[in-house]
Lab assay of single mutants.
Amino acid sequence: SDEELKKRIEELVRRGNKDEARKLAENANSDEARKWWEKLEQL
């Protein structure tokens, strides 16, 4: 689900694993996940 995906992306970003988070968001084929990633990346 998008919610689970967003949690995983956020967790990866928090751990400093941005590349992994980006790949996850891009491969998810989910606009919501991509937007979430872009938002987190700004922080």
Rank of each mutant, 00 (worst) to 15 (best):
R14N: 09
L40V: 08
W37G: 02
I9P: 00
K7F: 07
W37Y: 15
N17D: 13
A28M: 15
K7Y: 07
E3I: 09
K35A: 13
R34S: 04
V13C: 14
A25I: 15
A21S: 00
R14F: 11
D2A: 10
I9F: 04
L24H: 02
Q42V: 08
A33P: 04
E38F: 05
K18V: 15
D19Y: 05
D2V: 14
E4I: 07
N29K: 13
R34P: 02
E20K: 03
N17Y: 14
E11N: 04
K35H: 09
L24E: 04
I9S: 00
K39P: 02
R34E: 03
E26R: 03
A25K: 02
K23T: 08
E38Y: 08
E41I: 15
L12A: 07
K6G: 03
E4V: 08
I9E: 00
K39M: 14
E4A: 10
E38M: 09
D2Q: 10
I9D: 00
E11M: 06
R8E: 06
E20A: 09
A28R: 04
L40N: 03
N17I: 04
N27F: 12
A33Q: 03
E4R: 05
E41Q: 14
L5I: 07
S1A: 12
A21Y: 01
E3K: 07
D2K: 06
R15N: 14
K35S: 11
L12S: 02
Q42S: 12
G16V: 01
R8P: 00
E10G: 02
Q42T: 09
E38L: 09
R34M: 14
I9Q: 00
D2W: 15
D19G: 05
E32L: 09
L24I: 06
R14I: 10
K39R: 11
K6H: 08
N27C: 11
D2S: 10
D19Q: 07
R22H: 06
A33H: 04
V13W: 15
A28D: 03
R8S: 04
R34I: 13
R34W: 14
R34D: 04
L24R: 00
N29L: 14
R8K: 11
E4H: 07
L24D: 01
N17C: 14
S1H: 12
D19F: 04
K18D: 05
K7Q: 12
N29M: 12
A28P: 02
R22I: 07
E20W: 03
D19S: 06
E20N: 00
G16T: 00
W36Y: 13
I9K: 00
K35C: 08
Q42I: 09
N17F: 14
E3C: 13
I9V: 04
E20P: 00
L12E: 04
K7P: 00
K18M: 15
E11I: 06
K23F: 08
S30Y: 05
L5W: 12
K23H: 07
E10Y: 10
L40H: 04
A21P: 00
K23W: 11
N29C: 06
D31L: 11
R15W: 07
E26K: 05
K18N: 09
E3S: 09
K23G: 03
D19E: 14
E10D: 05
V13S: 02
L43Q: 12
E10V: 05
K7N: 11
E4G: 06
Q42F: 11
E41L: 15
A33Y: 10
Q42W: 07
R14A: 11
A28I: 15
A33C: 02
L40S: 03
K39C: 11
G16P: 00
R15D: 11
N29P: 08
E3M: 08
D2M: 15
L12G: 00
V13P: 00
L43P: 05
L5A: 02
E26T: 08
K6E: 04
D31Q: 10
A25S: 04
N29Y: 08
A28E: 03
G16K: 01
E10L: 14
E26D: 06
E38S: 08
E38G: 05
K7A: 13
S1G: 12
G16D: 02
S30R: 04
K6C: 12
A28W: 13
E41D: 11
R8Q: 11
K39Y: 15
G16S: 01
E41V: 15
G16Q: 01
E3V: 08
S1R: 11
A33E: 02
W37F: 15
R34V: 10
K6S: 05
K35G: 09
W36P: 01
W37R: 03
W36S: 02
R15L: 14
K23V: 09
L40Q: 05
S1Y: 13
K18L: 15
R15G: 12
